[in-house]
Amino acid sequence: MNLFVLNIAFAALFVTLLEGGGLPTFLFGFALGYAVLWLTKPLYPKTRYFQKFPKTINLTLFFLKELAVSNLKVLWDVITPKHINRPGIIGVPLAARSDLEIFLVANLLSLTPGTLSVDLSEDRRTLYVHVMFLEDVEETRRQIKSGLERRVLEVTR
């Protein structure tokens, strides 16, 4: 985490030194800082920043892709006169344990394809999810677990 702050500081310094410039300059500075930190990796033996950063990018890209796809599906159901939705509520067993993990899984799930987290069981083992286009219960459950939850856990663990 400290390395991330350092990386941001590097990018900010880069922008200041170049006197202005927009987001592209900042991103370039960030990439440059990341490269420099990566080259000096042996100096920080305990950090897991270099494993986690690509995973975070992976999660973000996956999330953005799902957001776009899901919206097109909802859009299709809304603008065509005939409804194609087949809603249902299914329980998904959670592998996520800590507050942060459950928060991330539930919230990202609410924003992605036709799924909406409705309730969390009292023992925090099952997340009840409302699915808008439900065809196959087991298949959907597997998709949620191997798609979103796996990627979230890769970042947090």
Binding site: L75, D77, V78, H83, N85, M132
Partner: peptide, 23 residues
Amino acid sequence: FVAALGIVRLPDTLTRMHAATKA
């Protein structure tokens, strides 16, 4: 606009929320 239309057109509260939050 699609979100607003979804709120008006979709059949029940939970499906309406799909349109409202995502779109």
